[in-house]
Simulated assay, not measured.
Amino acid sequence: MARKNKVLISGWTAAGKTTHARLAAAELGWTYLDMSPVMKELTAVNGSRDWTPEQDDIRRRNRAIDIEADRRMLEMVSSGSSIIVDAWLQPWLYRSASAVRLWLGSSRTARTRKCAVSGLRHHEHLSGRQAAKVIRRKDGFARRQFARLYGIRFGYDPTLFDLHIDNSAYIAETSIAASDAGIREFQPVLMRRLEALLEAGSRR
């Protein structure tokens, strides 16, 4: 069996993929790889945010952007090792057994709170209703786009993912302090489960 030297993290909008992928990469001393710079380059939408509604509008009009972005990401994943990958579709597109596929689950309530907190970190004030709307829009676009392009039914699939871990309970309210506390509390939980899988894979 192939040595596990990649971790592919996926999940719905505002599940915490980027935050926990970056922290996991830092703790393991691995390389962090994400789709955001590739998508920014291909859509020519820059700025401090990893995602904007404008990006999805551009992608909707030109589906070739997603195909090229996924091709570039797959090439980087295939050519690297000891990497943590934050990209929605890589668990489906990267076929090698050298990867641990991790689905980061989070309830709609928790994701709405995290989306609003993300706005606060960028000095934007989103109401709960506005944050929920952002989540619905982004989730819906991703679901439709991935189905059209690849026939993929995006979501947790127990036959594909090696680890499903849920962080819904780790944000008690919509505040940066609560979010930071939840991140600190959840990250060790995630790392224990992830490191156990990596260690088991390395022994086979």
Rank of each mutant, 00 (worst) to 15 (best):
F141M: 11
I65D: 00
Q145L: 12
A169K: 07
M35W: 13
N167V: 03
R136W: 00
H123R: 14
S118W: 15
A69W: 07
S168M: 09
I165M: 03
I183M: 02
L120S: 09
M191T: 09
A14T: 03
V85M: 03
M1V: 10
S10K: 05
R22S: 12
R113W: 08
L42S: 03
I165Q: 00
R192H: 08
E124G: 02
L160T: 08
P53A: 15
Q90Y: 02
K138I: 15
Y156V: 06
W88F: 13
T18F: 09
L198K: 06
T19V: 14
D34F: 03
S96R: 08
E41D: 13
M73Y: 01
L163H: 02
Q130N: 06
E27H: 10
A181Q: 11
H125T: 15
S78Q: 09
R3S: 13
R148S: 15
A172W: 07
E124H: 12
R71T: 12
L198V: 08
H164M: 09
P37A: 13
A64R: 06
R101C: 04
A181K: 13
A110F: 12
R143G: 01
S98K: 06
I84G: 00
I176V: 15
I135C: 03
A69R: 06
Q145G: 00
V85S: 03
Y32I: 03
K114L: 13
A177N: 01
R136G: 10
L89T: 05
R143W: 09
R143M: 09
Y156F: 14
R143T: 15
W92I: 04
D166V: 08
A200L: 11
D86N: 13
H123N: 15
A116Q: 03
A200H: 14
